[in-house]
Simulated assay, not measured.
Amino acid sequence: MPEPQAASPRTPDATRRSERSRRAIYDAALALVTEVGYARTTVEGIASRAGVGKQTIYRWWPSKSAVLLDAYLDLAGQAAGDAQGGPGGQDGPEAPGLPDTGDLAADLRAVLRATVDELNDPRFEAPTRALTAEGVVDPELGARFVKRLLEPQLQLYVDRLTAAREAGQVRDGVDPRVALELLVGPLTHRWLLRTRPLTHAYADELVEYALHGIAPRQA
């Protein structure tokens, strides 16, 4: 009888191995920025923490800021996936539109409260601060941060405020791009400077002031 042949060894899946390395690098970058801050985070430190060679990182990214940006986008994608009950990731689901229940004030309060929760979340706070600060001194990084993360989020406000204007809930002539800054601008200012706690109550006040102004109301 012929001898049974040994099973041929499986060829290693380079795609899976690369994905595991990429995931480890993302986790390492986010962890280090949270633990030691952006200034003390290095490509060497990320590589050591992730268990990969430094050359592996430089093969995919030109700098630690580029690593952190992709890691942050992946984290945001994971969070969006969790919120929708589906898969997340850097190429995961698109952010859902702002709620449109017909009550503009209630919808804006819900969104700003969720933003407060995210900004206060330790997973997001350190990398968001790092990318915001680095984007000021690195225009290329700042432009990528705006294009890939901030602009899509701001467009959701534009769409919701435009729908409210068409429904007669916002007066004609209001520019949604300016109007949204009345909401997200003060929120970001308080968070960046840590002037006072960022709370749901503050988010609700911003909606009230943005929609009704600060001038005395006529009886």
Rank of each mutant, 00 (worst) to 15 (best):
E3H: 11
R23M: 13
A39F: 04
T41V: 07
V158M: 11
T195Q: 13
W61Y: 15
P96K: 07
Q78K: 12
L73V: 05
T199Y: 09
D74R: 06
A163K: 09
R129M: 10
T15N: 11
V36H: 05
R49C: 04
P9D: 12
R23D: 15
D138K: 06
L211E: 07
L69C: 08
E181C: 13
Q55G: 15
L180M: 00
E205M: 08
R177C: 12
V36W: 01
R144W: 04
G135F: 00
P2R: 08
L104F: 04
R190A: 13
L32Y: 05
A143I: 03
R17Y: 01
A6L: 09
Q153G: 13
A164N: 07
V67G: 10
L206Y: 09
P122C: 12
P176Y: 10
A28S: 05
E151Q: 12
A143N: 03
L108S: 13
W191P: 02
Y26I: 00
S65N: 07
S48Y: 01
L149N: 08
L192D: 00
W191M: 04
V184R: 04
V146I: 04
G97R: 06
T41G: 09
D159S: 06
Q155Y: 14
W60Q: 14
G185F: 14
D13G: 02
I214V: 01
P9M: 06
T41H: 15
E208H: 06
G168K: 06
A39C: 01
A201W: 12
P93Y: 02
S48E: 12
Q218D: 12
Y58R: 05
R177H: 08
D117I: 04
R17A: 09
G89Y: 08
A95W: 13
I25V: 13
V116K: 05
P62H: 12
P176I: 02
S8Q: 05
P152K: 07
A105T: 02
H212W: 09
A130W: 05
R129L: 14
P62I: 00
G92T: 02
L141A: 07
V137H: 15
L68E: 03
A210M: 07
E140S: 08
A31D: 00
K54Y: 09
D103L: 09
G37F: 05
R190T: 10
L192A: 13
L156R: 15
Q155A: 03
E44K: 13
Q153R: 14
R177Q: 11
L104K: 02
S48M: 02
V43A: 14
D159W: 04
A39S: 14
M1I: 00
R40I: 00
T162P: 03
V33D: 03
M1K: 02
Q90W: 11
R196P: 08
A133F: 06
